[in-house]
């Protein structure tokens, strides 16, 4: 009887090892093809045929200086914008969602519609209206690249909202916060020590999406004439498609490592909380690491 129930690790009806490998392997393989094609493209030796690392070596020997210095500056811009956008999600969106969920349940629909709204407003539409807003904004805070984070905060709103809301739906936030309040916690304590740890997966997923959105954003930056990674790559590709592809691959790889690091950061912090799960091995190792 127990063979049919996959309740291992608290997850119901997880697929078997073979099924999982087939699905992940198949999808992974198909998704690897364009990346492999990009790598193959950069190794081509032109008309002579065959492959070598000449283009990679040249790019690395010259470094991101001279011709490619703008790419480095653009990358710095994009990373800064990612940080700013995640900050907007954490400081503005998460507390508002929790406040509405706990204290103003009647506003839930309103908040939801508001947060999903940006998806019905494509970047190319939004940018037309953003241009005058940004020209007014420039008078007060300047026209620095970082101001784009205000626009990106809106762009990531639907994705961050859905990720956090999915998690919020699976957690009984009201009971948790009432219990914490009964035990004498203040609102800050409820938020930071009870709710945020319980919603970590959703918040983390929201932050993931925010970072990825910002690193890949092209429309708003290009139409508001500000430089970010994507607009700089397009400029490079016009003269030198091989280097543009190499830089794209590097950018993808760096973005992947960055997100992996952020993901690990989240799971490291989760460990101490695991001390309360009835699995003895996790509780001891978790205690050592914290």
């Amino acid at each position: 009887m127990t063979a049919g129930i996959g309740t291992a690790r608290g997850v119901a009806h997880a697929p078997g090892r073979l099924t999982r490998m087939l699905i992940l392997g198949g999808v992974g393989l198909v998704f690897a093809v364009p990346i492999l094609a990009m790598i193959e493209f950069t190794l081509r030796r032109g008309l002579v045929g065959g492959y070598d690392f000449q283009r990679w070596i040249e790019l690395f020997q010259n470094g991101l200086t001279g011709e490619y210095a703008p790419i480095l500056a653009a990358l710095v811009n994009s990373v800064g914008l990612a940080v700013g956008t995640v900050a907007i999600v954490l400081v503005l969106l998460v507390p508002t969602m929790l406040l509405v969920h706990i204290r103003f349940p009647r506003l839930r629909r309103t908040l939801e519609i508001l947060c999903i709204l940006p998806i019905s407003i494509p970047a190319i539409v939004l940018v037309v209206g953003l241009a005058p807003v940004f020209s007014v904004l420039a008078r007060y805070v300047g026209s620095g690249v970082w101001t784009l984070a205000f626009a990106y905060g809106i762009t990531v709103l639907p994705f961050a909202y859905r990720a956090i809301q999915s998690n919020l739906d699976g957690v009984d936030v009201r009971t948790l916060s009432e219990a914490a309040r009964t035990l004498g916690a203040g609102w800050a304590g409820v938020l930071l020590r009870v709710l945020v740890p319980n919603l970590r997966r959703g918040i983390l997923a929201g932050a993931f999406i925010a970072v990825a959105v910002v690193l890949g954003e092209f429309t708003i930056a290009s139409l508001l004439s500000r430089v970010n990674l994507q607009t700089a790559l397009v400029v490079v590709s016009k003269n030198d498609p091989y280097s543009a592809v190499i830089l794209s691959l590097l950018a993808l790889f760096v973005a992947f490592l960055l997100l992996l690091a952020i993901g690990r950061l989240g799971t490291e912090r989760r460990r101490p909380a695991r001390a309360f799960t009835p699995t003895p091995t996790t509780s001891t190792s978790g205690g050592d690491q914290s």
């Binding site: 997923a205 990825a212 690193l215 890949g216 790559l233 590709s237 794209s248 950018a251 997100l259 952020i262």
Partner: peptide, 14 residues
Amino acid sequence: DSLSSVIAQFGGAM
């Protein structure tokens, strides 16, 4: 998770 986040926004030029 990380790969999905990167590729989901792997739009535009790249």
